[in-house]
Design a protein around this nucleic acid. Structure first.
Lengths: 345, 345
DNA sequence: AGTTAGCACTCCGGCAAGGAGAGTGCTAAA
DNA sequence: TTTAGCACTCTCCTTGCCGGAGTGCTAACT
């Protein structure tokens, strides 16, 4: 079916999609004829268009409007016709600089890159950070945080920082805390959070007697704190960009839906998690993305890694009518930039 | 001038404001006459309205529409005519519960409360946390964070956590880090961040010789990390609520402006900082708020404290036409709730 | 002197009619 | 197979018109 289209037909489809991306208006046969150097008359184009419509790639808002690409049309365009624009030197530089400025903890870094990505693409940008349970710990520390409260801080390789508050713990002395921090760090050496948790339970069970009361309590406490999994994080930047898109600016209802989704992190998480596992860039067009609340938006996302393991993904969320030829390379570049940045951390 | 209005006039103003708050439509003399139990005829009301317009409290969108309160009108209403609604038992409970769930670090707590506040008020809610430089430290820790990177974690009383990455530091051994953490903690005891910084510099200058090379380097490094002031934080919840307001839903331009402002934290900061210092609740109506980008929005905010010192403020941002009688008590309650929560931290 | 009924006037919003423009599908000819 | 021509359809914009809501003013009433 799809692949059974001749060259001329696909060229027409390509022009229609690109014109539609540029103008957000239904495109007519006349326009396409001109765009193709008048090698074909409008009438011929119309025939081809009729074929494309039958094949499901185009649709007509009403009898005598031009054609608009359907989801399938965009899909085909992305998969087979897309001519990627290469990034401008300046854009790459900007991204690099942004990454350089994100010289705080890791979340600072991804946030900066995400922000710039959203500016360059003029779309809303999203970064998700998967729950860092699988990542290798760099260090652990127990800190006093007020009366009967202790803070367990964990730092992963790459600079992800997490903290959990442990409440209702009768105060340990500073010395005790330090002693126990040191001990925890030993246990944590080269392990993931998950492994550390297991190790702690192990120690606890194995030789309870070996520890004095303080140590035992500290172990129990840490185990407890590490039990509730941290949920992973979502950063959204450039929300206002979606107002730049006429399809949202005009339709308050759609706008509301997507803004609400932005506030519900789990929804965004679901949108991007497919990209997280896969290595290649993922483009979900409209209805394809499995989130039923948002059937009419597209997501372009790519996972980024730290060494061999995926730690999250970065991407753009916007209308189906996106400038994919520009946006796909941008996202790819941003993701690979993050991967590179994490390499030497 | 203003106070020179007789009782009847102010009652009319009150009804106009309240009706306008409820309907978002210009209100006419007929409506007000009915609302006041027909004790006065529409014609009389019209005369009063003309007076109020002359005094600057009302305006007419066009010759034969009803009247709309001006900024000054709202101002007068808020200052003199407002009948506060008391909170429903259920709302107070909900807020309490939200505060209870925020049982992580302090930012978790304020975020929860802010989120619920935004739900109850159906407006966007904002919390700012002032730069915690003035707050008293609870503990400090230096942690390894990858190659040549060290993380300085500071925990304030009340549970505010900050971390700064120190880059390009040749690795210290775990032992050295621990030793120095302990030393730093001693210096920090009962001090604010600012004082700690001063103290460190002091130590450094005073008796350089006393410290071995490692200690010296560690001191320098900490001083450096503590030099760039942390900017303070802004959390915004319930952005989508502003779409519920017809004044924004209809006017894409205003919408865009306010969404952009939400992305520019410094703007939001400026909006709320007045509330931070003052103890009473602050209501800025429209043009009054000093941020020139947003002349047509209102801010209702109140500072919250930790012990004697203000640590930030919580509030709502929305159209000038807000239900102040409901929203003001809500914000007050939320702020006092935060203050209470921080009391026993 | 303050209040009110009455009335003319203004302005908005909705609706229908009409015309221009854009684009289509179909047919017949090249 | 392509294309010119043409009738047709649909949207969108403009225009004109009407009803409704609300005002301001004046004159009468209390």
């Amino acid at each position: 079916m799809a692949s059974g289209m001749d060259d001329r037909t696909t060229r027409v489809l390509r022009h229609i999609v690109e014109d539609y991306i540029a103008t957000a208006e239904p495109v007519g046969s006349r326009t396409i004829s001109k765009k193709m150097g008048q090698s074909l008359s409008p009438a011929t184009i119309r025939n081809i268009m009729a074929d494309l419509e039958e094949a499901g790639f185009l649709a007509q808002p009403h009898t005598s409007a031009g054609r608009v690409p359907t989801g399938a049309g965009f899909r085909y365009y992305i998969d087979h016709l897309l001519a990627r624009q290469s990034l401008a030197r300046g854009e790459m530089d900007q991204l690099h600089r942004a990454a350089g400025e994100g010289n705080g903890p890791a979340d600072e870094l991804v946030r900066q890159v995400s922000r710039l990505l959203s500016n360059l693409a003029r779309q809303a940008s999203v970064v998700v950070v998967s729950s860092p349970e699988q990542q290798i710990l760099s260090s652990v520390s127990l800190m006093r945080a007020g009366v009967e409260r202790i803070l367990l801080v964990t730092v992963m390789r790459g600079g992800w920082v997490q903290h959990r508050l442990i409440e209702g713990e009768p105060d340990l002395t500073g010395d005790e805390l330090e002693k126990f921090s040191a001990y925890l760090n030993e246990l944590a050496e080269g392990r993931t959070l998950l492994q550390l948790r297991a190790r702690i339970l192990d120690e606890l069970g194995k030789e309870k007697a070996r520890y004095d009361r303080v140590m035992g309590r500290a172990l129990t406490m840490s185990a407890r704190a590490l039990t509730d999994a941290a949920p992973g994080e979502v950063f959204i930047e450039g929300r206002a960009n979606i107002l730049e898109q006429p399809e949202f600016a005009e339709d308050v209802h759609r706008l509301k839906r997507i803004l609400r989704a932005f506030e519900e992190k789990s929804v965004i998480f679901r949108l991007l998690d497919r990209a997280m596992v896969s290595r290649a860039i993922q483009v979900s067009v409209g209805i394809e993305n499995t989130v039923e609340e948002l059937p009419d938006i597209s997501v372009v996302a790519s996972g980024y890694r730290q060494g061999a393991s995926s730690v999250g993904s970065i991407g753009l969320i916007g209308p189906v009518r996106m400038d994919y030829s520009r946006v796909i390379p941008l996202v790819e570049y941003a993701a690979s930039l993050l991967t590179t940045m994490f390499e030497d951390r």
